[in-house]
Write a protein that binds this DNA or RNA. Structure first.
Lengths: 196, 196
DNA sequence: TTGCGTGTTGCACGATCGTATAATAACGCT
DNA sequence: AGCGTTATTATACGATCGTGCAACACGCAA
């Protein structure tokens, strides 16, 4: 416990970010204290201040890291789907209902970020940036399926909302429906958008 | 400041619940401390323990109260819509995009509750109860529109998800779309469900 | 091997947290 | 009018919060 183990700043920062994500997932936003995070990472509380200059900055870095991982997982699903535009769009949407996206711990992390975005302007900016990228990717995939350019923006808003709502309830109160039903619902909705 | 003003327990409880809702909306879940709530209500911090036996119980009571107000507002919109089943369903859905539901403060309150539901079993139970009622009402309105009974459950899940997702983004990052566009999106979705 | 830079620890500090408790004051009842 | 009930306040207590700081120790250069 008391033996210092020296690490490169970059590696230590990633350790702390990973520990913050675990704490956020298990204890919620209220339990994300400097001491809890430091204990989870197996280091001293002072390291948070030393590497990030405060717990707020650490949480913000964790959000950016987790959001990048989510975007990467969705992109990997698209790449795995091949070349058919319809299949790529479906893969991007349905990836939200499978691991590692459809995870109660990830939902808890996300909710913690939402609850902090109200008080922290930097967090709100990070959130807006991430969601804009998400919708932009959705618009591009819809356009590739032949959706009229004039309707792409609103269609992306609808798809994003449906996916978010399904993902939220799927993780929050699982039991009322399952991932297969979520895929069926989004499949019908996408079919309507692409056809009409 | 130091003059005690006696009130009936019921009235005082409602005062504290209203103050908690205001604090949750303005300061978020993290700022909902006993002292902040008591100051907002203009009373002493000890009253929270006296009337609710702890801040956790007060927050839970606030959730039930706010959820009941939301349900009542949605029900009022249905009653105002008249007798046509399609109009009643549309009114129930579109009420979420108008005051007093489409409100940034209400969203902040809701997010605060979500963030607490992870750690508090009683809050999770209250949330599950409220959402089950919401979906059940939606199922009944869909059935009245002629949706096949076998499809009502899943259709209600989809509508609830779409509405929740639109409501969330409408309040959280307003600017990407407006309430009229949200109504257009849900209108198309409902038309698809009722027709097919 | 010696010395310097710095990652790391352990602790102290003030602020704030939730709650218990004794004193006070207002209301209903006889 | 006097009294009991209890809503209310003020205060105290221990725990925990975020952060600043001085000492320590590990790795690398000379």
């Amino acid at each position: 416990m008391s033996k210092p183990s020296r690490a490169t700043p970059e590696a230590r920062r990633l350790d702390l970010i990973a520990a913050t994500a675990r704490v956020l997932a298990s204890h919620g936003a209220g339990g994300a204290s400097v001491r809890t995070i430091a204990t989870e990472a197996g280091v001293s509380p002072g390291l948070v201040t030393h590497h990030f200059g405060g717990v707020a900055r650490l949480v913000e870095a964790t959000y950016d890291h987790v959001a990048a991982q989510v975007a990467q997982a969705l992109e990997a699903a698209v790449a795995r789907a091949g070349d058919d535009p319809r299949a790529r769009l479906a893969a991007y949407v349905e990836a939200s209902f499978a691991p590692p996206i459809a995870d109660a711990a990830l939902l808890a992390t996300w909710i913690a970020f939402w609850s902090m975005a109200r008080a922290d302007a930097a967090m709100a900016a990070s959130h807006a940036r991430h969601y804009a990228g998400y919708r932009a990717r959705l618009e591009a995939l819809l356009a590739a399926c032949g959706v009229a350019p004039a309707r792409c923006r609103l269609a992306a808003v609808g798809v994003a909302a449906l996916v978010d709502g399904l993902w939220l309830e799927l993780c929050l109160s699982s039991g009322t429906f399952d991932a297969a039903e979520a895929r069926a619902l989004t499949g019908d909705y996408l079919a309507m958008l692409v056809a009409g």
